[in-house]
Design a protein around this nucleic acid. Structure first.
Lengths: 119, 119
DNA sequence: CAAACATCTGAACAACTGCTCACATGTTAG
DNA sequence: CTAACATGTGAGCAGTTGTTCAGATGTTTG
């Protein structure tokens, strides 16, 4: 990110140095965009429920649909989103496709969020 | 959440016990909704940038706007969202309002997300 | 009080999201 | 191969979201 050229308001509230430091340590726009995209994936009740359902065990699409009381199609659409964000992984066994959490990050991120919600 | 009554697909992929356990340990719908709402707040580039800008120091609205190169109005709207989710806190000093991260949860949640993005 | 300044807010609009529906794909059993 | 089943996918639609614009609120100074 480039340092802004104009000061419309009279002063930089803290020290200009601090502000420059903030800018220096701020990740690039692309990274911040990716980060927002990641959280966006967690930002939907249906997807959160799916992830929670997979906390204990891997499940097939149909079971998730029943578990959450939503359409199989809706689940499939959301699993696609979750998979492309590498939050879940798929394993095919015959006609059935089993989904599971991709790694422990998912658990940790959700746990941190839950801490805030329950606080 | 109530246990689903009908099985459209022939079997519960793992053990029925496991599925029941998942349901038993799954937080209530309200909690899951709140959790999704929280992540939704993180799921926007502008808000993520604002939070990151506040990582090092408290800043006033005008400075944030300059720092990120966006309208003061847009910043104000987003700060409102961040504040009502208790992610930032405000402190008034004369005409100026300083914003800062509400607590360490915010840092931790973002850090966890960043881990996943950079992985 | 009036003027200047920083911030907040409501309305309106364009862009995006998640669901449903219909159908496509892929796999197994007969 | 065909039928049955589990899952995947594209189009369309209703609801939501973030921005801009104009103006309101609140604070300090003179």
């Amino acid at each position: 990110m480039e340092f802004p050229e104009i000061e419309r308001c009279g002063f930089l509230c803290v020290h200009e140095d601090t502000v420059k430091q903030v800018l220096a340590e701020m990740p690039g726009d692309e990274t911040l965009y990716d980060l927002a995209e990641l959280f966006k994936v967690f930002g939907d009740s249906t997807r959160i429920k799916i992830l929670y359902a997979l906390f204990e065990a891997e499940l097939c699409v149909c079971d998730i649909a029943q578990l959450l009381g939503i359409t199989q199609s809706a689940v499939s659409h959301q699993l696609r989103v979750l998979k492309s964000s590498r939050l879940v992984k798929a394993r095919r066994d015959g006609k059935t496709v089993f989904y599971a959490l991709a790694d422990d990050h998912v658990r940790k991120i959700i746990a941190q969020g839950m801490d805030h919600v329950l606080e």
